[in-house]
């Protein structure tokens, strides 16, 4: 159930390119999506699809040579209620947003914390930076945050160093650090990929609970569809630096309208239930043949066309636009209506 509400973050036509010795790499090539207040948006795609670069662009953490935000706008309404275009902000203004209005946690908890400072110091740093508290108060907030994320004996742990903690605990510390200033938006870039499955479940539970408690939005980046099913309200699927499908999570799972999404869903081993792909026998586990496109040399037409079962001549001619298939469900495929028809026939 999608919470209807105001738009917190709107990315419009974002293009982030990298100037390398071998040419221009178009990592993000015209991406548009939005996140509402209080909702969790999952961004799904393989490595190389541009999902991480998108999130780093939102945080303006792309190294500016060789990277560059070439076009587009990122409209964000901060805690002060004012809408700003992140692309146009100065570095000083951006620093006020990072860790404060928008926080980010990363994939590798083992290496994402500074080994020579205590975890309390690192959490307190954000608090002192954005909330103007002094060291003592900030450490108190740090201990509170540790308790908030479920770390036992927080007053003691606050003085410990990262190497004294396990991976799961370090990720909790990262979450505590990210949430310490009550951000409106949390960007989580594959936060559980590097963790054990059981720990993964705990971290996801934690994130859901925190989201309920403080009502923040989450931009969840992952390639794991199981996590998407658990966490997301809406989904954006990315391929070749573009959005290829967007919509409500249940819709996407039940009725994908882009061949890539179909392929992804069919690659999950699930007993019994499979999405019906027109022309395919039911119940088969499929891998998507071929490789991700070379970002230096994207096809002129649809980026997925070389690997697509349903490709036709027209697919090669131009990049398909995002079609609105109803109910906020978008798909970048010229044959989406045929898919819709087939799926309706099957369920009928």
């Amino acid at each position: 159930m999608t919470p209807q509400g105001e738009v917190l973050l709107a990315v419009n036509g974002l293009k982030t390119y990298f100037n390398t010795d071998d040419g221009v790499v178009k990592s993000v090539d015209g991406v548009t999506f939005h996140i509402n207040k209080g909702e969790t948006l999952a961004v799904v795609g393989e490595s190389g699809s541009g999902k991480s670069v998108t999130s780093l662009s939102i945080m303006r953490l792309i190294p500016m040579p060789p990277g560059q935000i070439v076009d587009g706008e990122i409209l964000f309404t901060g805690k002060d209620g004012v809408q700003k275009n992140i692309v146009k902000l100065s570095e000083a203004e951006m620093r006020k947003i990072r860790g404060n209005d928008i926080s980010m946690i990363f994939q590798e908890p083992m290496t994402s914390l500074n080994p020579v400072y205590t975890v309390g110091d690192q959490i307190a740093e954000a608090v002192m930076l954005h909330q103007g508290k002094n060291k003592k108060e900030a450490m108190g907030v740090a201990a509170d945050m540790l308790r908030f994320v479920g770390i036992p004996a927080p007053e003691k742990r606050v003085n410990e160093y990262p190497h004294q903690m396990s991976g799961g605990m370090r990720q909790r510390v990262m979450i505590a650090m990210a949430l310490s200033c009550n951000p409106a938006l949390l960007i989580a870039d594959e936060p559980t990929t590097a963790l054990d499955v059981t720990i993964q479940a705990q971290i996801l539970d934690l994130m859901r609970k925190l989201q309920r408690d403080i009502g923040m939005s989450i931009l969840f980046i992952t390639h794991n569809l199981g996590v998407v099913a658990e966490m997301a309200d809406r989904v954006v699927v990315m391929y070749g630096g573009r959005v290829v499908e967007e919509g409500d999570v249940v819709e996407i799972f039940k009725a994908p309208r882009h061949p890539y999404t179909m392929g992804l869903l069919n690659s999950i081993p699930r007993p019994g239930e499979h999405v019906h792909v027109p022309g395919q026998p039911k119940g088969r586990l499929e891998a998507i043949p071929g490789n991700v496109p070379n970002p230096l040399n994207l096809p002129r037409g649809c980026a997925f066309e070389p690997r697509c079962k349903f490709a036709v001549e027209a697919c090669r001619e131009a990049v398909p636009p995002l079609f609105d298939t109803g109910n906020g469900h978008m798909a970048r495929c010229i044959r989406w209506q045929e898919f819709e028809q087939v799926q309706q026939e099957v369920t009928a």
């Binding site: 990298f18 390398t20 071998d22 040419g23 790499v25 990592s27 490595s47 190389g48 991480s52 670069v53 780093l56 792309i62 190294p63 060789p66 990277g67 990363f106 994939q107 590798e108 290496t111 870039d189 594959e190 070379n294 970002p295 230096l296």
Partner: peptide, 10 residues
């Protein structure tokens, strides 16, 4: 370390 600068395929 996540790849921010993509490496082209040789």
């Amino acid at each position: 370390m996540t790849t921010t600068v993509p490496t082209p395929v040789r």
